[in-house]
């Protein structure tokens, strides 16, 4: 039951992953992914009918708190890490055409 991934699927996954791979990287990624999926397909041997998907191991619930600022203003320190900044903001390429 070998998995075959089409070039279109790889293209689509590249869009989701926000990655641009070179042709060589794309070929490698495709064959790596096919091999991994073949291996992951062993899970199909397992009957999971009626089993609830478990996202968290403990029965804990979301914790809410009041929206109160506790950590002060760190904007200067935060902006110090910006690759590009303009005045008090991050500088990015034009986002709306």
């Amino acid at each position: 039951m070998a998995n075959k991934i089409s070039d279109e699927t790889m293209e689509y996954v590249g869009i989701l992953a926000k990655l641009r791979l070179s042709d060589e990287e794309k070929e490698n990624a495709k064959s790596d992914m096919e091999k991994m999926l073949d291996y992951i397909d062993t899970l199909n041997e397992l009957d999971t009918t009626g089993v609830e998907p478990m996202s968290h191991v403990f029965p804990v619930n979301n914790v809410f708190r009041e929206d109160i600022v506790e950590n002060g203003d760190g904007s200067e320190d935060t902006l110090a890490n910006a690759p590009l900044k303009k005045e008090q903001g991050f500088k990015v390429p034009k986002t709306i055409g």
Binding site: T9, V13, G14, L16, A17, L19, L21, E25, A29, D32, M33, M36, I40
Partner: peptide
Amino acid sequence: KRRIMLGSFV
């Protein structure tokens, strides 16, 4: 990149 691709796919 390999794991991001696999993760995005699944």
